[in-house]
């Protein structure tokens, strides 16, 4: 048993990918995130859990500067990706987002073909010089997203014509096509059935060997199944952050305990 557990964790490194220190986020007067300190490990799935409105999506958006697009939003503190401050004025947010990809709660394929959905990112970032290179990126991304076999015969069909679960895997393929280093996922399975959810979870587990994955989920079971680290947010604060097994068997903070056991806290 112990050996199996060790094997499962073989890729669980202790190398920090993202380091956040004293992160504050304000939406106008609303102090939405307070003093968040966290180290996100490389090649590890980190789950963010917590009640609605506690700031999970807000923090996720800080990690690839998606908050820049929200006029009333102000971010303070420091967030480093591999030691480089991502809020440095010299950092191009578009380049950053190629390195730190994002998958949203609702599948949002572009109104284009399946092929173009995946090829779009690599094209604008100039990752492929020849059509053959692009073909290869599209195929390998779709394979990694466990979608290739279902769509290989209809790559020209519109992405919007796929089922919800397939669309979500298409969005994952799109996000990984630019070879990101970090993949952020905001409730990626909330619109999916149990089969598609299991496929996405399996995929997340495979992606972990190459990327650092951060997932926001409202499903305690999903967080427990898919992550190695869990962070619990409450009222804009990071209350507890630790090894997933420990958080779900023996959390240290009473607020974490109340939340994960389904009590009124």
């Amino acid at each position: 048993m112990n050996d199996m557990r060790l094997l499962e964790r073989a890729v669980d490194t202790q190398v920090n990918k993202i380091t956040a220190r004293k992160v504050q986020v304000y939406y106008g007067q609303n102090h939405a995130l307070k003093d968040v300190d966290v180290d996100i490990l490389d090649k590890t799935v980190t789950a963010f859990i917590g009640p609605s409105g506690c700031g999970k999506s807000t923090f996720l958006r800080c990690l690839n500067r998606m908050n820049d697009t929200i006029a009333v939003c102000r971010v303070e503190g420091r967030i480093d990706l591999e030691g480089e401050d991502i809020y440095d004025p010299r950092v191009d947010p578009v380049q950053l987002r190629a390195k730190v990809g994002m998958v949203f709660q609702k599948p949002n394929p572009f109104p284009k073909s399946i092929y173009d959905n995946v090829a779009y990112g690599p094209k604008i970032h100039g990752l492929a010089r020849k059509k053959a290179d692009l073909d290869e990126i599209v195929e390998s991304s779709l394979r990694k997203a466990a979608l290739w076999n279902e769509v290989k015969d209809r790559l020209d069909a519109p992405g919007t014509g796929l089922s919800g679960g397939q669309q979500q895997r298409l969005c994952i393929a799109r996000a990984i096509a630019t070879s990101p280093e970090v993949l952020l996922m905001d409730e990626p399975c909330s619109a999916l059935d149990p089969i598609a959810t299991a496929q996405v979870e399996e995929l997340i587990d495979e992606l972990r060997s190459q990327f650092s994955v951060v997932i926001v989920t409202h499903s305690m079971q999903q967080a427990a199944r898919v992550s190695q680290r869990t962070a619990f947010f409450h009222l804009g604060s990071l209350v507890e952050y630790g090894e997933t097994g420990q958080i779900f068997t023996n959390p240290k903070d009473p607020r974490t305990e109340s939340y994960i056991t389904g009590r009124i806290g």
Binding site: P251, D253, P254, E257, T261, R263, I264, G265
Partner: peptide, 10 residues
Amino acid sequence: MMNNEKHIAS
């Protein structure tokens, strides 16, 4: 860590 609060699901 014990918890004596009630569950939401009674």
